[in-house]
Design a binder for these strands. Structure first.
Lengths: 198, 198
DNA sequence: CTTTTGTTTGACACTTTTGTTAAACAAATA
DNA sequence: TATTTGTTTAACAAAAGTGTCAAACAAAAG
């Protein structure tokens, strides 16, 4: 049986991700994506049927990859401080590499199509468990007392993601040059740890 | 001279803002906007010439309104702590009302068109001045020591904006119900103050 | 009430983008 | 080398979206 995989399908998805997550062109045409992938546009329909189906698939893969990565770092058996440092390292790198990924995901969730199932998935205990660890760290005095440990998680991601997402706007409003902003981002990790942990 | 202003032009812009900033439909068609405004689509071309011109104008107005609001609250002659509380109150309300505004702005900045001038505007001293106030507050011990006071500003906006922007994703990944998330947001102000100020 | 001025609309033409089809093509197997 | 299988393409058809125009319309001014 003749079978060969030129990897075209994967290339197309990779190209789409570059366009969406890196360049931030959220309403790229199928032609744009075909160009980026270096293939004929018809091929997109061959593999994915419709434009929406391609978007959906990229969406789903990105979401499940994100979910999986979260599981990994949040479940790790490490002392609290190390775990937090690890989380920051992992996610900050990802966010900086794909600054528009979260915006794309939000857009997709928000858009009509994308047969997004109403989280019929069983509740993931990862965050519930991590919240307990936060509580314990609070008791030990490693983290400042707060009402709800979920705020700790939200704070953590806010402090990592937002500066990257908002970069173009900040460079306008806060008059940062690219170099200055890179410098800011380079210091984020220690900045965040400093703020969240005692 | 016969002159009457039915306010249609303003209505269209308001409709566009609702669609972009509230509903988050970033690639709404001119028809979508006309429907939302309750007018004929041609009217959009009459007033704004092209779709892009409408987008640009909404973009510019939102940006300058944001800029102006920033000036206002950051310049206010208030004790540091009160000023920060004020900033949080003002922006949190705005962000919750228009959760997609910043994403729209980023998208516009990122898009080809939008003859976005490379900030030829003279540098706005507002943040520079506020950064000095942060320094002083650090010396007085009201704020934890950090390397660069600009991180304080970035932290502040991150903690306000991100939880709102990312809401749809968080409700998926962290398994929050709408009610639970509303509760979280309600507590943000005190949470942020607690974290940033001593 | 007629004119003037500016507003609103429906119909049309144009462009962009998407989706389909049939044929050409390339590589592995026999 | 011929066959099979799967890949890639150009050309076409259909759909969606944008922009223009001329005519109808409404309100203020004369």
């Amino acid at each position: 049986m003749a079978t060969r995989d030129t990897g075209a399908e994967e290339n197309i998805k990779e190209a789409a991700k570059r366009i969406f997550f890196v360049e931030g062109k959220l309403n790229a045409t199928t032609q744009d994506i075909a160009n980026e992938a270096g293939v004929n546009r018809t091929l997109l329909n061959y593999y994915f049927r419709t434009r929406e189906a391609l978007f959906d698939q990229v969406y789903k893969e990105a979401l499940s990859a994100l979910s999986q990565k979260m599981d990994e770092v949040f479940k790790a058996e490490l002392p609290f401080r190390q775990k937090v440092e690890n989380i920051i390292e992992v996610f900050l790198e990802d966010i900086i590499t794909y600054p528009f990924k979260e915006i794309f995901l939000i857009s997709e969730i928000n858009s009509e199509h994308a047969e997004i199932k109403k989280s019929n998935e069983p509740e993931n205990p990862v965050f519930r468990n991590f919240a307990i660890e936060v509580e314990e760290a609070m008791k030990r005095g490693e983290v400042n007392r707060i009402k709800d440990p979920y705020h700790f998680i939200i704070n953590l991601f806010s402090l990592m993601a937002y500066p990257v997402i908002i970069r173009p706007l900040n460079e306008k409003l806060l008059n940062f040059t690219k170099e200055e902003y890179d410098e800011i981002l380079k210091n984020r990790k220690s900045e965040i740890i400093n703020l969240l942990l005692n």
